[in-house]
Write a protein that binds this DNA or RNA. Structure first.
Length: 499
RNA sequence: GCCCCGGUCGUCUAGCCAGGUUAGGACGCCACCCUUUCAAGGUGGAGAUCAUGGGAUCGAAGCCCAUCCGGGGUACCA
C-alpha cells in the first residue's frame, strides 16, 4: 500500500496553488445541491488556475450504496466537470477513497491520544442514549458527558482487559472560543465548552468524517474548503483538530444550501433526486449547469444565460450569496428551452436521437437521419425538454395519424365547407410545387375563394395533414412531409369525413 | 432545549462591505402586438412599506440593538 505514503512521498506543489476538492459520500446519488457544491469548487479551481480533486468519503460502511460512486462520477462527467485528481484519473495524493486510507487515520488518532488530545471511550450505545434522554429531560445542551475522558489508568486497563469495544474521542478544550474567518460568512465563533467530545474513530476502526476530512485535506494540501452550510457547525471541531495536529487549516467557505419548495433540506422527496435523472428528463447539461451556477452566485445585476468561459472568468467568492436558495424547476425548464434554441440542427438531432429511439413506437424506427434533420428545425423553438420530441414528431413518421375526422370541421364551419376545402386543397396540392412561400400564397387565395378564414381553412388542413390541432406552421410542415404523404392524408380525410 | 447561519417581488437575484434619484434584472403570471394553431419574439402591467420594532444620522434596504420567522447542527451519518 505504497500509495498511502502520501505524507512522505508527495510531490511538492506551489505554496499558493489553489487546490479544492469535492468530497461526496457514496451513500446515494448526488442531487442538485450536492453537484452545485462540486460546480462551485470546480469553477473556483478553474478561475484560479488551480486543481480540482474528487475524493470519495466512504467511511460509513453501513450506508454504502452499490453503484453510487459511478453515479457520482458519471454525473460530473455528464456536466463536463472534470477533475485533476481522484478516481478514474489517479494523482499524487492517493488513494482518493478514504476506505483505503485507514492506516493514516489510525496514526493520527494514536498521536492525538499520546498527546492527550484524544482518548478511548468505552461507553456503550445504551449509556449514550440514556445520557441523551436525561439531558433532554433537564433541557440542557446535548452532547457526550465526557465520562471516559476522566477515567483512571486502572479503569482503562480494566476495560481493555475485558476486551470492551471502544471508540476514540477528541478532547475538546473546555474553555475559550474557536473563531472562523469564513470566506462567505465572515467571522463566526463558538464557545468551546458547547462543543462536545466528538468521535474520531468508530469501533469498527473507520474514522468519522471529522478525522478523515481533516487528515485528508491536510495530506492532499487542500487550500480551500468550500462546502455547504450544513457543515458550518462542524467547523470548530475541524479547526480544533487542525490545531491539535499542528496543521495550518485551509481557508473555509460555507456555501448557501439549496432547499426544496417546502424550504427544507433537499432530499429524495423533492422530485428528481439524482443528477442523472435530469439527463433522463431531457435537460441539457449546459442548461442545468448554467441554472445551478445561479443558485447562490451571480455575475452582475442582469446576466443569467452565459457560456462556461464567462462563469470561469468571473467566478469569485465575493459574489456568492449567503441565503439558501429554493430550487425552481420551472426556471430550469425555461433555461433548457433557451439552450435548445441555441443549438445547431446537427447537435440537436444528436441529442434528440436517444430520446426518439426510446419514445417512438418501434414501427416508426429506425430513424432516417436526413429526414430528421428537416424536421428538427420545425420543433426546435417549441421544445423545452428533449423528452417532448417523440410526441412532437410522431406524425411526421406515421403512415396515417389517427384522429377523429369530426375535428376536420372547424368551429363555425359546416361539414360541407370542410369537404369543399379538402377537395379543392387536394386538387391543388396534387400538382403544386412544394415550396413554403408558394404554398402559402396559393392556399391563401384558395381560402379566400372558398370564403373561409385562414384560421378555419388552415385548421382543417392541419388536422388532415398532421392529425393534430397544433403543429409547426402548416406549410413548413407540409413541405417537410412531402407531397406524397400530404396528398395521401388529405385523401384519407376526405373519405373518412364523407362516410 | 442548546449552538450557528440566514431573512429584498411567489421563485432566483442586483444593490449592502466603502449610507444619498421612482429598489434594477430574470422565471412565472396577466394584457396587447405579431399571427394559420402551438411556440418563439416584441411591448406593457400587476407583484417588495427591503421580516418587525427601535436607535445613531440631515438622510437607511444598507450601520447598531432587540424581537420574530426560516433553515442547519446537536449520531459510532456524511
Amino acid at each position: 500500500m505504497s500509495g498511502l505514503r502520501a505524507g512522505v512521498s508527495r510531490r511538492r506543489i506551489l505554496a499558493d496553488e489553489v487546490r479544492v476538492r469535492y468530497a461526496p459520500s457514496p451513500t446515494g446519488l448526488p442531487h442538485i445541491g450536492n453537484i452545485r457544491t462540486a460546480l462551485f469548487n470546480w469553477l473556483f479551481a478553474r478561475h484560479h488556475g488551480g486543481k480540482f480533486i474528487v475524493r470519495i468519503e466512504d467511511t460509513d460502511q453501513e450506508r454504502l450504496v452499490p453503484g453510487a460512486v459511478d453515479g457520482i462520477l458519471d454525473g460530473l462527467e455528464w456536466l463536463d466537470i472534470d477533475w485533476d485528481e481522484g478516481p478514474r484519473v489517479g494523482g499524487d495524493f492517493g488513494s482518493y477513497f478514504q476506505s483505503e486510507r485507514l492506516p493514516l487515520y489510525h496514526a493520527e488518532a494514536e498521536r492525538l491520544i499520546q498527546q492527550g488530545d484524544a482518548y478511548r471511550c468505552y461507553c456503550t450505545r445504551e449509556r449514550l442514549v440514556e445520557v441523551r434522554a436525561e439531558q433532554e429531560r433537564n433541557k440542557v445542551s446535548l452532547g457526550y458527558d465526557r465520562r471516559c475522558r476522566h477515567l483512571t489508568q486502572a479503569e482503562r486497563n480494566a476495560f481493555e482487559d475485558e476486551g470492551a469495544p471502544s471508540v476514540v474521542r477528541f478532547a475538546m478544550p473546555e474553555t475559550g472560543v474557536t473563531k472562523l474567518k469564513d470566506l462567505i460568512r465572515d467571522e463566526v465563533e463558538w464557545q468551546n465548552e458547547l462543543v462536545d467530545d466528538f468521535i474520531l474513530l468508530k469501533s469498527d476502526g473507520f474514522p468519522t468524517y471529522h478525522l478523515a476530512v481533516v487528515t485528508d485535506d491536510h495530506l492532499m494540501q487542500v487550500s480551500h474548503v468550500l462546502r455547504a452550510e450544513e457543515w458550518l457547525s462542524s467547523a470548530p471541531r475541524h479547526l480544533q483538530l487542525y490545531r491539535a495536529l499542528g496543521y495550518t487549516p485551509p481557508e473555509h467557505g460555507h456555501l448557501p444550501m439549496i432547499l426544496g419548495p417546502d424550504r427544507a433540506k433537499l432530499s429524495k422527496r423533492h422530485g428528481a433526486t439524482s443528477i442523472l435523472e435530469y439527463r433522463e428528463d431531457g435537460f441539457l447539461p449546459d442548461a442545468l449547469r448554467n441554472f445551478m451556477v445561479l443558485l447562490g452566485w451571480s455575475l452582475d445585476d442582469k446576466t443569467e444565460v452565459m457560456p462556461l468561459e464567462t462563469m470561469v472568468d468571473n467566478f469569485t467568492l465575493d459574489r456568492v450569496g449567503k441565503p439558501a436558495a429554493i430550487f425552481d424547476r420551472e426556471k430550469l425548464t425555461w433555461m433548457n428551452g433557451v439552450y435548445i434554441r441555441d443549438m445547431d440542427v446537427e447537435s440537436l438531432a444528436d441529442a434528440l436521437t436517444p430520446f426518439l429511439e426510446q419514445g417512438l413506437a418501434p414501427e416508426l424506427l429506425p430513424l432516417d437521419r436526413s429526414y430528421l434533420l428537416t424536421i428538427v428545425p420545425l420543433i426546435q423553438e417549441r421544445l423545452k425538454s428533449l423528452t417532448e420530441a417523440p410526441d412532437m414528431i410522431a406524425y411526421f413518421l406515421e403512415e396515417q395519424p389517427e384522429y377523429d375526422p369530426a375535428n376536420l370541421v372547424q368551429r363555425g364551419m359546416t361539414t360541407e365547407e370542410a369537404l369543399q376545402a379538402l377537395e379543392k386543397a387536394l386538387h391543388y396540392l396534387k400538382s403544386a410545387e412544394f415550396d413554403t412561400e408558394r404554398l402559402e400564397e396559393d392556399m391563401r387565395s384558395l381560402g379566400e375563394e372558398l370564403g373561409l378564414t385562414p384560421r378555419r381553412f388552415f385548421g382543417t388542413l392541419r388536422w388532415a395533414a398532421t392529425g393534430r390541432n397544433v403543429s409547426p406552421p402548416l406549410f413548413d410542415t407540409m413541405v417537410v412531409l412531402g407531397k406524397e404523404r400530404v396528398t395521401a392524408r388529405l385523401g384519407w380525410a376526405l373519405e373518412n369525413l364523407t362516410s
